[in-house]
């Protein structure tokens, strides 16, 4: 009987660990991700540096880098009647972070591209070597895309923090209400 019990226990444990193991992260693509933005992200970003929560915290405490939150945010349609109630979801972010929503899609309109370039230029005080940390939430390709895009603008100190606000909050680090994007 004893070996049967052990066998059952081992089988179930094996089942549990395979059923719940995280899928191995995908390889880094050469192009921007254009769909399924909330799905497992790669472990690398060519030309940029990937940060763990600890590393992100150290950089944040150092205070020299610009943190850029690219979590998308629906824009109120311009022609929606004035009396229509519009409610942007409240969102907590890393204190001091700059909110640049909707810049992490696979392809962006020239208007959005200009908005992103201007936003990053302001955040970096027009210094292409200024450290920039891009994030959104865990398993969010928008931050990977945005960091990759910033590299294409020739910024040289691009950091990507894949754990984003989820990892930050799980580590018990402080957050603040995000300023609404514009």
């Amino acid at each position: 009987m004893r070996w049967q019990q052990r066998l059952v226990a081992v089988a179930l444990l094996a089942f549990c660990s395979t059923a719940f193991a995280e899928n191995s992260p995908p390889a880094e693509p050469d192009t921007y991700r254009a769909d399924n933005y909330r799905s497992p992200v790669p472990e690398t970003l060519k030309g940029g540096r990937v940060l763990t929560t600890n590393e992100a915290e150290t950089i944040w405490r150092g205070g020299s880098a610009a943190f850029i939150d690219v979590l998308p945010q629906p824009e109120r349609p311009a022609n929606l009647p004035a009396e229509t109630l519009w409610h942007a979801q409240s969102h907590d972010t890393i204190p001091g972070a700059i909110r640049l929503p909707n810049v992490g899609h696979g392809e962006i309109a020239p208007e959005t591209d200009a908005y992103f370039r201007n936003g990053v230029a302001a955040a970096s005080r027009r210094d292409s070597a200024h450290p920039l940390v891009f994030f959104c939430r865990r398993n969010c390709w928008m931050s990977w895309n945005a960091a990759k895009r910033a590299l294409s603008y020739n910024y040289s100190s691009v950091y990507w923090y894949p754990e984003g606000t989820d990892g930050w909050q799980d580590a018990g680090l402080p957050v603040e209400k995000a300023e609404k994007g514009h």
Partner: peptide
Amino acid sequence: YSGMQMDQITRLYTPAWFIE
């Protein structure tokens, strides 16, 4: 149209257009 649907070519939002 919800006004939140992206035009696949221009990458801009199609204006809201709906039964009021």
